[in-house]
């Protein structure tokens, strides 16, 4: 069985801890050999820090990777941003000996060394290929009769040149995992579009990010779903806190936002409160009631 270390990043533990709790429940119930990656830092966030200085981005990302190399475990990410940052850095350093040498000279100052012995995984791709839809179905104790707008986000699948996953324009892995839990994945226009948050746009140019979010939420609203399911706390925050900002401007959507780990934990018999759906920024009490206890 595959050994993994769970990389938390920033937003999951520090803004949406329900996702951290839910992920632990899922990994435990599925019988995966896992532990948290103690002492990890920011991945670091690719849009901002890779933009500023690539050597710094590689140094910090590689420190996180070496913590997992020491344990001889693959790194499991639950965020598209962390995945994009760590997987891209890992690949770059494995394939470019000059960059590896430069990065290792920084790492040597803290007594670490990048060897390139492990892989970086994303929870969707990991569950799909290592556990499989069938085995997940067998673990379900409460099938969820929900209509869901699946949001893949960007960095799970792109750039395709550095990803093992199949189609970029019409993927199905995430939809299959959602439907395994009894849900219906409802198709909608611009399903593969960005949430608007990435690339440092949310942090510095919030109105631009929000315009992209509002467009996507409009398409999801028309699809008449019970909730949005994503696999990235940054998309999660952009849709969740974004709806609060948009409501402040008179544009109400009221669509609950749920990370796949939370959805899976619900189907494993846990309550909405157990996995912190009630701790979203927007009010999700109707949705929590719909789910019952």
């Amino acid at each position: 069985m595959m050994r993994i270390s769970l990389f938390l990043g920033c937003l999951v533990p520090n803004r949406y801890p329900g996702i951290e709790k839910a992920t632990g429940i899922c990994l435990e119930t599925l019988g995966i050999d896992w532990k948290e990656l103690d002492g990890a830092s920011c991945c670091p966030a690719p849009g901002v820090f890779r933009s500023f200085d690539e050597p710094t981005w590689l140094a910090l990302a590689s420190r996180n990777i070496t913590l997992s190399e020491t344990d001889d475990r693959d790194v499991l990410t639950i965020c598209n941003g962390c995945y994009g940052s760590l997987a891209d850095a890992n690949l770059k350093l494995k394939n470019n000996s000059l960059l590896k040498e430069q990065t290792n000279s920084h790492l040597s100052q803290i007594g670490r060394h990048f060897d390139g012995t492990i892989d970086v995984r994303h929870i969707i791709e990991f569950l799909y290929s290592e556990i499989g839809v069938q085995k997940i179905k067998e673990k379900i104790v409460r099938p969820l009769d929900l209509k869901v707008a699946v949001h893949y986000g960007c960095h799970m699948l792109k750039p395709s040149s550095s990803r093992a996953t199949a189609s970029v324009e019409h993927p199905s892995v995430f939809d299959e995992l959602v439907e395994a839990l009894g849900c219906t994945s409802v198709d909608y226009p611009d399903k593969m579009e960005c949430c608007g948050a990435g690339g440092g746009v949310r942090s510095a140019l919030g109105e631009t990010a929000l315009a992209i979010t509002e467009h996507k939420l409009g398409k999801i609203e028309d699809a008449d779903v019970d909730c949005i399911v994503e696999a990235c706390p940054f998309c999660h925050m952009q849709f969740d806190a974004g709806q609060v900002s948009l409501a402040g401007k008179g544009r109400e959507f009221g669509i609950p936002v749920i990370h796949y780990s939370q959805l899976l934990a619900l189907s494993l018999g846990y309550s909405a409160e157990d996995v912190g759906i009630n701790l979203n920024e927007m009010d999700c009490s109707d949705f929590c009631n719909l789910l019952g206890k």
Partner: peptide, 22 residues
């Protein structure tokens, strides 16, 4: 506090050291 650098001051020190080195 999560199990990240928030709970591990030595790791935070390493991160700061790396940032300075870069």
């Amino acid at each position: 506090l999560p199990s990240t650098v928030h709970s591990h001051p030595d790791d935070l020190k390493d991160v700061k050291h790396l940032l300075a080195s870069c």
